[in-house]
């Protein structure tokens, strides 16, 4: 006879599944990168306490289905080395994950591998995870290395897209126009030629770095600082799925961390107390309070770089089913 507190189970990162008597454990992997030594530990849980299968979640974690509710404490003990190795903040050691609301912070492969990346997405994702987890509030944050946005940050509450500010040393340019062609065909056509040298339209440039990648003489290089485009309040779902819109452009790492943390205070203050399961997407809260109120909370104490552009107001569109 099962007598369960489903709210506590869900908060412990186990799912109430459609199969009576069986739960599923969700393993967080911030930034989507782990060392291979952890795989046998996950395999062991799946084969000993699950049904032998592992689902790769949409947020780059693992979900182990087919676990009996009675085995949760044992599985939590087996999760401990994984939690420690991935340096997940934990309130009570040995008790598994102590929140599930704030989702795994995901990231594209970034500069570890990808030639297009402008920064180490995994490291920034791990820093963000450290700052915001554990928390019961429903936040989705994702990091992508460049404007290609392979992780689809624009479907997240907070999406962070890497940018570099191209530096042009005109004396190293012989005018081959590889940058111009790459920018026109692969990016936003922000480069033009004047007297055989390149003029960058700073209004259009998205900081993707295609000019740098394609320059054969190092006339184009990256800025020492990495910048980010912070896009906000994208979402899927039943009522009004929509893409995230630009909030900050040419923003810094510290400003982004601060804004995300500030948003937790905003949500705590304005969340619908009657929301089913106590869960309301941030975007719908902003729809209710208005962008100005969100901005007031989000920007509290945020120090902006002189280059940072703040979009004000931000309008979203998407598909409206209600």
């Amino acid at each position: 006879m099962l007598d369960l507190n489903t709210k506590k189970i869900k908060k412990n990162a186990y799912r109430i599944t459609k199969v009576r008597g069986e739960t599923a454990s969700r393993i967080r992997v911030p930034g989507g990168l782990l060392t291979a030594e952890l795989l046998p530990l996950i395999q062991n849980i799946a084969q000993t306490y699950g049904n032998g299968k592992i689902h790769l979640t949409t947020r780059q974690g693992f979900e182990i289905p087919g676990i009996k509710y009675g085995d949760i404490d044992t599985v939590n003990a087996l999760l401990q080395p994984i939690i420690e190795k991935l340096e997940i903040n934990q309130e009570i050691p040995g008790k598994g994950y102590t929140s599930a609301g704030t989702r795994n912070v995901s990231a594209c492969i970034g500069s570890n591998v990808c030639p297009f990346a402008t920064y180490n997405t995994t490291n920034f994702a791990k820093r963000m995870e450290k700052e915001i987890f554990p928390n019961d509030l429903h936040f989705k944050v994702a990091f992508t290395g460049c404007a290609n946005d392979c992780i689809k940050t624009r479907m997240h509450d907070f999406g962070i897209i890497g940018m570099t500010e191209p530096q042009y040393e005109k004396e190293r340019c012989m005018g081959c126009q590889a940058c111009v062609k790459a920018c026109k065909k692969k990016s936003v056509d922000a480069l033009s030629v004047e007297n055989y040298r390149i003029v960058r339209n700073t209004e259009k440039c998205v900081g993707c770095g295609e000019c740098v990648i394609n320059c054969p003489t190092r006339a184009w290089t990256r800025s020492p600082e990495t910048y980010y485009r912070l896009v906000i309040m994208g979402r899927t779902g039943k009522r009004n799925p929509r893409l995230a819109e630009d909030f900050l452009v040419w923003a810094t790492e510290d400003a982004i961390i601060k804004i995300v943390k500030n948003t937790y205070s905003f949500v705590t203050n304005y969340i619908d107390r009657d929301a089913p399961g106590g869960k309301e997407h941030i975007g719908y809260i902003i729809d209710r309070t208005g962008f100005e109120e969100f901005k007031k909370w989000a920007m509290d104490g945020v120090e902006l770089d002189s280059r940072t552009i703040v979009k004000n107001p931000v309008y979203w569109s998407g598909i409206h089913y209600v």
Binding site: S111, P115, A117, T118, T164, G209, V212, C215, R218, T221
Partner: peptide, 15 residues
């Protein structure tokens, strides 16, 4: 060594 001036991010150029 020109730190970070390579074709890809975090890659140096020696010139």
């Amino acid at each position: 060594r020109y730190v970070g001036d390579g074709t890809f991010v975090h890659i140096d150029t020696i010139r």
